[in-house]
Structures are given as C-alpha cells and as structure tokens.
Amino acid sequence: MSEPSLTAPHQLAYTYKRSLGPVLSRFFTALRDRKILGVKRKDGTVLVPAREYDPDTAESLDELVEVQDTGVVRSWSWVPKPRAQQPLDHPFAYALVQLDGADTTMLHVVDAGSEAQMATGMRVKARWAKETSGAITDFVFVPGE
C-alpha cells in the first residue's frame, strides 16, 4: 500500500496595483460617490459599465453619463450555496441587470432573500455599502423601485 499523496493549500492572488485608465478611473471614482456611470457610443446608446472602447467598432469612447441605480433583471441564476469568495454569505442571485438609462445589461448580484422572489423582468435597486471604496462590490441589488 502506498501512502496517500501530500497536499498543501495554495492561494492565487492579484497582488499588485495598477492604473485603471481614463474611463474606468472615473467609473470607479463615481461608485465611491454612489453614482453609476455609463459611456455614450457614437449611435447614442449607453454602455454600462463604462468602457474605453466601443466593443463593436473599437472607437475610443469618453462621454460618460450618469445612469440610475435602479433597473430591470433580464436574466438570473440562483446560488443556493455561496462560496467563501462570493459577495454574500447567504443564498443570492447573479443577474444581468439593465439599469434605467442604459442600453446594455451588466452582470451583478441580487440579494433577493429567496429564489421565489426572483423573476426575469423584476425591478431592482442598488443597496450601497455603508462605506464605499470605489469598487464594483460597493453595492448589490435588492428587489424594489
């Protein structure tokens, strides 16, 4: 009989700091102030999160516009057993949320309490952290106007 293999834990991490560039810097600074920014494309539609380049045409984008922190769930999935790294320690939903004023959805979290509360088309609003730090985790969505 051979002895069982040795095992050891190993933590992968992104341990260095980096500049976010002209557009994402403003996007994240705005989050710190509890505002969500999109970016206007040439055709007038608004992308959220804001992006430095148009994903279809690769044109530079820099016209940032504020969108609402309320919106509509376009699709979702339920996380019955969150992992330690995930943003909430109780069951929640990941969802594609289209914010009021935005033409695209963004992937984020909905703290709905139970799966039965989730539905495509439901209204959600941001619940901001008591202390914001300029990160995408400064808010989660909750059901309601």
């Binding site: 995930q86 990941y94 979290v109």
Partner: peptide, 19 residues
C-alpha cells in the same frame, strides 16, 4: 475590474445564458 471581483462562478454564468 467590473466582473471578477463578484466571483461569478462558471456554472452561474452558464445558467444565466440558459435562462
């Protein structure tokens, strides 16, 4: 910056697409 810090696992993302 905008997505990974939320740690959406591969199955949750695929489920959103399936829905």
């Amino acid at each position: 910056y905008t997505t990974m810090p939320l740690w959406p696992d591969a199955i949750s993302i695929a489920a959103i697409q399936a829905r």
